[in-house]
C-alpha cells in the first residue's frame, strides 16, 4: 500500500517485489485536499507536498509546516510525494514530521469499520515503524489553529540545498512577549534520534525566560541528553549533536521585536 510512491520507487529498485501486490491510495479523492474546520484544518493524507505548499490555509495558518515542505526533496518529489506517506514512512529525517510534532498533529486512522485518532508522537515508534494495523490506512491529519505563536521556525541542515536527506532539523513554535519573554514554546528535532525528538523538559526550561543566547545555551545540556544521534554516511553523531544545539541559536535571528534582545 502506498500513496505517492517516492520512497517505494527507491526501495523496489533495491529489493524488487514479485509479484507486485501494490495498492495505490494516491488517487482517492476523499484522501486529498485541505478542509477548514472551526478549530483548525484537516489535511487529506494523500495530498501531495506541492499541493499543500500552494494551499493558502497551510501557508497562513501553519507556516511552520509550509517551511518544512518548502525544502522537502525537489519539485518532482514534492509533486508525487504525499504528507501521509511522509508520516507512514516514519523516517526520523522526514521533513514534515518536526513541524507536525510542534503542531501537535492528530492522525485519523481508518479501517473498514472504524475510525480512530492518535497523536503523531504516539503513532511513530521507531525508524520506519508506526502503529498502523493491518487493514488500516492513514486518512488524514488534524491540525489545530493556534494563532498565539509569533515565531514559526523551521531549519533543515542537509548536504545540499535541494534533494537532501536532513542531517539535522529543527522546528519551533514560540510565543515571545514584547519584552522578549518566552511565554510558550514547542520544539522538535529531526534526524538526531530514532524518532523525532520533542523534549518537554527543554521547552519547560525555556519558558518564562528571555529569548537570548544565554537562555538558549543553558538548555543545551538538556537537549544533548534528549537526543541520540548516529554516525552514518551523511554525518557523524558528533556533528549532529553539535548542530542540533547550534541551530537552536537561529531562533535569535527570528525574534521579531525590539533590537537589543536576543543578542
Amino acid at each position: 500500500m502506498y500513496a505517492g510512491g517516492t520512497d517505494l520507487l527507491v526501495r523496489l529498485r533495491k529489493n524488487p517485489v514479485n509479484p507486485f501486490p501494490l495498492v495505490c491510495l494516491g488517487q482517492i479523492k476523499e484522501l486529498k485536499g485541505v478542509r477548514e474546520s472551526p478549530e483548525g484544518a484537516f489535511i487529506g493524507a494523500c495530498s501531495s507536498h506541492a499541493s499543500l505548499l500552494s494551499n493558502p490555509i497551510i501557508r497562513y495558518a501553519f507556516p511552520v509546516l509550509a517551511k518544512g515542505l518548502q525544502v522537502l526533496g525537489s519539485p518532482p518529489i514534492r509533486n508525487m510525494g504525499t504528507i501521509g506517506g511522509n508520516i507512514c514512512t516514519a523516517s526520523p529525517a522526514g521533513d514534515t514530521l518536526p513541524p507536525l510534532y510542534v503542531l501537535d498533529a492528530v492522525l485519523e486512522i481508518r479501517s473498514q469499520n472504524a475510525v480512530r485518532r492518535i497523536a503523531i508522537k504516539d503513532f511513530i515508534v521507531g525508524p520506519g515503524q508506526q502503529r498502523l494495523n493491518k487493514g488500516e490506512i492513514l486518512a488524514g491529519i488534524w491540525l489545530k489553529n493556534d494563532p498565539d505563536f509569533n515565531i514559526h521556525h523551521f531549519e533543515k541542515v542537509g548536504q545540499r540545498n535541494a534533494l537532501a536527506i536532513s542531517v539535522a532539523s529543527l522546528s519551533a513554535l514560540l510565543k515571545v512577549s514584547e519584552s522578549g519573554i518566552i511565554e510558550r514554546v514547542r520544539l522538535a528535532w529531526g534526524s538526531v534520534a530514532p524518532t523525532i525528538v520533542s523534549p518537554t523538559n527543554v521547552e519547560a526550561a525555556l519558558k518564562g525566560h528571555f529569548l537570548s543566547k544565554d537562555t538558549l545555551q543553558k538548555v543545551m545540556p538538556l537537549l544533548r541528553e534528549a537526543i541520540s544521534p548516529i554516525d552514518d554516511i551523511r554525518a557523524t553523531a558528533a556533528y549532529r549533536r553539535t548542530v542540533a544545539g547550534n541551530i537552536l541559536l537561529r531562533l535569535l535571528a527570528s525574534f521579531p521585536y525590539k533590537e537589543g534582545y536576543g543578542t
Binding site: V10, S74, Q159, R160, N161, A162, A164, I233, R234
Partner: peptide, 23 residues
C-alpha cells in the same frame, strides 16, 4: 566518495552528493 578498505561506501547519487541548481 567514501572508500573503506577498497570498497566504495557511497555508490549512488543519494549518498554521493553532487550539487544541484540550488547550490
Amino acid at each position: 566518495l567514501v572508500v573503506a578498505r577498497g570498497k566504495i561506501q557511497t555508490p549512488n547519487l543519494s549518498t554521493y552528493v553532487i550539487p544541484t541548481a540550488m547550490d
